[in-house]
């Protein structure tokens, strides 16, 4: 029983990090309809920027965190400006945008590989040292993941519901044409969605680096989970994406209670497939195909 509780706590900590990446993706996808596969690149760049600032340049962690967030945000703005905006409104289909996005993803992953090599980096820290908390064993990173993602998601929710900009973003998700109709600039809100969505992946990347270290492949696994969570949660629903991510994090951890650890990713995607077949609109999605 305490094992199950332990796996549940681990699952929530992992799910919280997934949620930040997934909500960023869902925000971008919902408001701009860009299937931003390269969202994983923002995550990858944030992780390596943090590592570089901390371990190579020797700055303090808050500065490194800011640097990571800035790099992720700039990356999001750059692809919006130079890749997706020229593609908007042409003959481009969903697939062309997907393939272009994939091209960005491959280019970034290999640029990182050239700059840092394929070796595995770890962050030296006492943050991942575990201690007992009641019946379970946790590390400070676990607690930070849970608290940090909760705070950031609540802030995002307040931003989207209480400010004019947030309202416009949500309006754009419902009906992009409407935004032009009331005299708001779509490009400006697309920029905000990309900046915000990409920035959210930075804290997730940093915390995940403390837990699992850094490899050039980390972006692709984060991206896959974010995609799965968005679909499980229901396209167009940020709360659904967050919930989907939590569900996948917990499913992965509880799943290895009975199955070998190598099945983690497969478990998450089996959950996804079942959802797609049983409830294609997701947990919280609106009823659409």
């Amino acid at each position: 029983m305490s094992l199950l509780l332990q796996l549940l706590v681990n699952g929530v900590a992992l799910g919280g990090l997934y949620a930040l990446v997934a909500v960023g993706f869902a925000l971008i996808y919902g408001s701009t309809r860009v299937f931003h596969f390269a969202h994983g690149s923002a995550y990858l760049l944030a992780a390596y920027s943090y590592y570089w600032a901390l371990a190579v340049a020797g700055t303090a962690w808050p500065i490194a965190l800011v640097a990571a967030t800035v790099v992720a945000t700039l990356f999001g703005l750059a692809v919006e400006r130079w890749v997706y905006r020229p593609m908007r409104g042409g003959r481009q289909s969903f697939l062309t945008v997907f393939v272009a996005s994939f091209g960005v993803f491959v280019a970034v992953e290999n640029a990182v590989l050239l700059a840092f090599g394929s070796r595995f980096y770890t962050l030296p820290s006492s943050l991942s040292r575990v201690f007992e908390l009641g019946p379970v064993v946790v590390s400070p990173v676990d607690l930070l993941s849970i608290a940090g993602s909760a705070v950031l998601l609540i802030l995002l929710h307040l931003f989207l519901t209480r400010t004019g900009t947030g309202l416009a973003l949500r309006a754009m998700a419902d009906n992009p044409e409407l935004l032009n109709g009331v005299g708001l600039d779509r490009n400006r809100y697309a920029r905000i969605a990309f900046a915000l969505g990409s920035a959210l992946s930075a804290p997730a990347a940093v915390l995940a680096s403390y837990v699992a270290g850094l490899t050039p492949g980390m972006g692709s696994s984060a991206m896959l989970i974010a995609l799965a969570a968005t679909i499980v949660g229901g396209v167009g629903s940020l709360a659904g994406a967050a919930l989907g991510a939590l569900l996948l994090g917990v499913a992965e951890n509880v799943g290895i209670w009975r199955l070998p650890a190598n099945w983690r990713e497969a478990i998450a995607f089996a959950v996804l497939l079942v959802f797609l077949l049983v409830r294609p609109s997701g947990v919280l999605g609106a009823a659409r195909r």
Binding site: L227, E265, A266, F269, L273, L276
Partner: peptide, 27 residues
């Protein structure tokens, strides 16, 4: 899934199919 869902949903469904199959090949 191809009969149940379309477009981006099917992309993700096939993605899931791929990941599960890779694990089966490996395990």
């Amino acid at each position: 899934p191809a009969l149940r869902v379309r477009e981006e949903y099917f992309v993700v469904a096939s993605l899931g199919f791929q990941v599960v199959a890779t694990t089966v090949f490996e395990q």
